[in-house]
């Protein structure tokens, strides 16, 4: 991984800053307009979870190279309350009322790779990747 940037997320205007950075990094990698929109939306969702549940945290945006493959990695880290039931958090909740409504299932659908670590009382780390096809 290279060229990583970290943005401290402490208020809703930081969400826009993170989103714009993600879009810029994605554009440099030559992602399509649809992919850039997806990247910006995913950053928005993850950064908003930080604000709502942990009050503050970091968004890390990096580029990744794996052989000939190039991609973007977006990581959201916080020291908030953590997610007690990750299984429940990964259920689609917007229309059905199931799940926690964190938007995580949608984020997983939009990206190529999705990882989540969370410990109650210690924090949450969500890391997602999108490869340039």
């Amino acid at each position: 991984m290279d060229g990583g940037s970290t943005i401290a997320i402490t208020s809703d205007s930081d969400i826009i800053v993170a989103r714009e950075l993600g879009r810029r990094v994605g554009k440099e990698l030559d992602f399509s307009l649809t992919d850039l929109t997806i990247i910006a939306t995913v950053i928005s969702e993850l950064a908003r979870n930080i604000i709502i549940f942990a009050k503050h945290g970091d968004m890390i945006i990096e580029t990744i190279r794996h052989g000939k493959k190039v991609g973007i990695v977006i990581t959201a880290v916080d020291k908030g309350p953590g997610i007690p039931d990750i299984f429940l958090a990964m259920q689609d909740g917007y229309s059905t009322g199931k799940g926690l409504g964190l938007g995580l299932p949608g984020v997983r659908r939009l990206m190529d790779e999705f990882e989540i670590f969370s410990e109650t009382g210690k924090g949450t780390r969500v890391s997602v990747k999108k490869w340039l096809m």
Binding site: T37, I38, T41, D92, G103, V107, L110
Partner: peptide
């Protein structure tokens, strides 16, 4: 609503 935005909203499950 822009085409890319519509695409992303549907994928995300937003209606």
């Amino acid at each position: 609503i822009q085409p890319e935005v519509a695409f992303t909203m549907v994928q995300l499950g937003l209606t």
